[in-house]
Design a protein around this nucleic acid. Structure first.
Lengths: 334, 334
DNA sequence: TTGTAGGCGTTATCAA
DNA sequence: TTGATAACGCCTACAA
């Protein structure tokens, strides 16, 4: 890499000390206007850029937030990153993202290598098998946990109103007269999915409806798994009258499967999803869903983290719930 | 932030010099097994983590790639990041992302602040109004341009086969007997969109079909703009028999609009998109599209960049085209 | 096999 | 208003 000009080169060329150049670059007022202009001219001519790492070393700030996500697949995570990036940028922070930390060891390695490169971390770990990693973070290091199960161990935390959202959707379906309401679940180890499952079962129980294992189809949040699950449900001798997929991607897959099975939505089977991704209103029929403001979730996490970074002590631990909202469209017979 | 243990603390506690600790942490062979174990024990006990910034400063490597994207909205960019992240991680690199650099100045500021924090840059700048930024990068700094218009200025570059993909789709529609083929364009300043437009017009010309301005509807790559555009096309006194949206999101919006206009797809109007996002096969009817392996595009960009970083000189400039493939589904009458 | 010491590029603390 | 100079935490000759 072509060696760039350093502060020393600028200082020599401008005939001043490095301290003066530093002051100019940091907009200190303790510089004569003439000197300032001379330094700026030289800096510009030499194409000088302050070196980020050197700066971080002495200031002990990186102006960077670290973000660990379970995956980067689909519109959901893209929205989360967007929210984080926007909030971070507003405060002059960069965002470093990393994903798919399947096991404890890999996750830990990643956290280690981020030390000294980020001022704080946003950890989104819906996998309840590795969520315990949060307890091993250096004490006092700013961290915000997103959609993590269990103890926050003194860190700020944000969660979706998964339980409430699922409960509301199922309750709505019951109100519509449905008695056999099937679901398409997420992976067993997924915290969000398990909370939605809790909401589903609670709503059934509160309506005195029986929980039937055959109505709880497996899924993994992908379109394909929704397709398979719905195809299976359509073949049941005692078919459900409604299918609640635990995310929209699976709901879209389900719509496709039901169409192939010659079942009409919502006349024969009502369908609902979770997340309310932008595409939900454009599929046929438009999809009922539990709306989540995903980018707001990301933005809120970033804002909390920036608060923790900028006010290291004296803060109380925040534990927030991002609300969800029922969006009823034609797929469940509005 | 709780001050973490440094290499000095470990050295003192283990009764060795900092050089020895450094050797242990960097897996140097020049350490006695007993010493190594003792140092590792102390390091682990103290929770020692090498400081990234300090390391970068002396080694002149950050193990981080910088990625500048135009936006973080939708499945497309999420896939790009996924591809980049996977390729980077395999080589032990981090990824720092940033988006939405609307104007020249903002972009430049971002590039400045990344100096010393990344070993190279992936720049995705489809906006032809700011693509010239590439010419202002420090010479010799590893950069890969993705979907950028114009001169690569000595940098590696990757582009999609936009022209070829659009040409092939339009040619296919013509083969199917269509004579009035409308399009839903992207923004005027979008390079990908302008290339697709070129492909469309060339295909018409080669088939001796006239180019009609009223068939070239405006769009901005969002579902909503596709909806509006298709609604307008449906109202034309001389209606097109096919609509080719320049991305899938707009095609999905178009399907929705045609449905409301009581037009059958593909019987009354054929529809096609571009990108072939995962959802394309699940909409009704399944959407014909120009397939792009988006994450492969990202992965390839990362691989090129890593090559440039690891072999700074003696490399010849690479200029690659990522191919597209026609995927014909029911929406255009397969 | 280990230790000493210099330096990476910057900011902060003193004096001047 | 400016300039020396000591950090920041780490790596790497060179010496022992």
């Amino acid at each position: 890499m072509a060696r760039n000009a350093t502060i020393k080169h600028v200082a020599r060329e401008a005939g001043v000390s490095v301290a003066t150049v530093s002051r100019v670059m940091n907009h200190s007022v303790l510089v004569a206007d003439g000197t300032r202009q001379a330094v700026l001219d030289v800096a510009s001519r030499l194409g000088y850029r302050p070196h980020g790492a050197a700066r971080s070393l002495i200031t002990n700030r990186t102006s960077t937030l670290g973000v660990l996500l379970p995956d980067l697949y689909g519109e959901f995570f893209s929205e989360v990153i967007r929210g984080i990036d926007q909030a971070a940028r507003r405060e002059g922070y960069h965002v470093i993202v990393s994903s798919s930390h399947s096991d404890h060891h890999e996750l830990e390695t990643m956290l280690r290598s981020m030390w000294g490169r980020v001022d704080g971390l946003i950890l989104m770990i819906p996998d309840i098998r590795v969520a315990t990693i949060a307890s091993q973070l250096p004490a006092g290091f700013p961290v915000v946990l997103v959609n993590c199960a269990g103890d926050t161990n003194g860190h700020d935390a944000i969660n979706l109103a998964n339980y409430e959202g699922a409960y509301a959707m199922v309750q709505h379906l019951i109100t519509q007269g449905h008695r056999r309401i099937a679901i398409i679940r997420g992976a067993d180890w997924n915290y969000d999915a398990s909370e939605r499952l809790r909401g589903y079962r609670a709503a059934l129980r509160d309506a005195a409806l029986p929980a039937e294992p055959e109505l709880e189809a497996a899924g993994d949040f992908s379109e394909g798994s929704g397709y398979e699950a719905a195809a299976g449900l359509a073949r049941l001798r005692s078919r459900p009258t409604a299918i609640f997929a635990f995310n929209d991607a699976m709901a879209v897959g389900a719509l496709s499967a039901l169409r192939e099975a010659k079942l009409r939505v919502p006349e024969d089977v009502a369908v609902a999803g979770f997340d309310d991704i932008p595409m939900a209103r454009y599929v046929e029929p438009p999809l009922s869903s539990v709306h989540v403001d995903i980018s707001a979730l990301g933005a809120r996490a970033a804002t909390l983290l920036l608060g923790a970074i900028q006010h290291p002590d004296g803060r109380e631990i925040r534990r927030e719930i991002v609300p969800t909202a029922l969006v009823v469209r034609r797929s469940c017979g509005s």
